[in-house]
Design a protein around this nucleic acid. Structure first.
Lengths: 224, 224
DNA sequence: GAAGACTGTCAGGATCCCGTCAGGATGGAC
DNA sequence: GTCCATCCTGACGGGATCCTGACAGTCTTC
């Protein structure tokens, strides 16, 4: 889950942000001043920071500097000042975006999504693991016991269609249209063929599959 | 030098931006409408795009979509509309920042710096090494056993497209749009040709490549 | 117990894909 | 104009991939 650190000294703003963020599925942690912000950031390692510039004690610019000394997590600055000098200072100090109060919640959330989208491009690849098999969906790569296994395009599409819905039954019709495209709903012999191929390459005992199960008369199921 | 693509149909804004950008050491190229923007972006491969939303003919949102189909270069949107709906739409379509007109030049430049900083900072791989080959992405330079190897522009773009995603499969479609620009998705003979050229120049045994692997039916992969 | 439906397996040929080569087109340097 | 590098198109052979059809085994149903 994506974790957001909200730094502001006004409780009502913190509460409003937290409610909206949680409603959208983010995990929220908070800090009331600059010192606490640096502490919480180091302890909880949020994916993004929303930082009010008008903080007591420690100046907002210094908080940015304190964060940038050891991390490049995205920082979105909130501020009541709309003069460009403050914006330039904050951005050049290392902030990634600058929103002036009062702000629209929709816009703030959209800017947050934009920042996160840019950052997750380099994140670790999502992978599905079961038994000795590891399926790296982002890299389009399959390994068994660390050794790479070569899959043909059709085998890969079928594997993807199964693995993307763990535990769920996928009907023959669904699999056929997903792998071979619409119009191939009757080529069930094909499905059996490639299913066997997948099991031969990925199952320990292809005759008695543990992960790629058959629901007779219905379809197949990936059981991790 | 950092290259900026400015897209706007109002000449005075283009000129003002170009003057300010050049004064700060950027290289500037321009486009007057959406179609030209996509064309220039593919041909010149700018480091960042400044895009006016109020374009004739092709809608700004569609331009964002057209760019995001094959590149993730930063996009800064300019717009006369300040209502949050347009901001949200543009940001969710793939824009990285949204500035409403009239804008302060200082602020715009600061936002530009912030975007560029993020992009070059996350990169952190100015050079890639594998076997006897060293690819210097920053300097556009390739050496094998210390000796410089000359690459043509197309060869270089292909190498870059592969090397920037180590281990990941890159589909033929991805490579074609990234190297030749959108609209060249069917020129697969080309891809094979330049792939062979790259292997001939960089692989020890071009017939049995170790780093530039092919996944039949899917695409190619750089394996360091 | 028999019939039918369903699944897993095997083999064979058609098709597609990849690497390679040659040749023409384009554009810039001199 | 000539030379040169680069880019693109088309064609060919070898190999991998895909599809079709047939057969045996298993389970359900009558």
């Amino acid at each position: 889950m994506t974790r957001v650190l909200v730094v502001d000294d006004e409780p009502q703003i913190v509460r409003a942000l937290a409610i909206n963020l949680r409603a959208r599925g983010y995990e929220v942690c908070t800090a009331r001043d600059g010192g606490e912000a640096l502490q919480v950031a180091a302890a909880r390692l949020p994916d993004v920071v929303i930082l009010d510039l008008g903080l007591p004690r420690l100046d907002g610019i210094d908080v940015i500097g304190g964060l940038r000394g050891w991390t490049n997590m995205p920082i979105l600055v909130l501020s009541g000042r709309s003069d460009s000098m403050h914006k330039v200072d904050a951005l050049d100090a290392g902030a990634d975006d600058y929103v002036t109060k009062p702000f629209g919640m929709d816009e703030l959330m959209a800017r947050l999504r934009a920042m996160l989208r840019r950052n997750t491009g380099a994140e670790s690849t999502p992978a599905v693991e079961f038994g000795d098999v590891r399926v790296d969906l982002a890299a389009t790569r399959v390994t068994v016991n660390g050794e790479e296994v070569r899959l043909t395009p059709t085998e890969w599409r079928l594997l993807e269609a199964l693995v993307r819905h763990p535990g769920k039954l996928r009907s023959q019709r669904q699999l056929l249209t997903e792998v071979w495209g619409p119009g191939y709903e009757t080529a069930q012999g094909n499905l059996r063929l490639y299913m066997a191929q997948l099991r031969r390459k990925l199952e320990v005992d292809p005759a008695r599959p543990r992960f790629f199960l058959t629901d007779p008369g219905l379809g197949y199921r990936f059981q991790p």
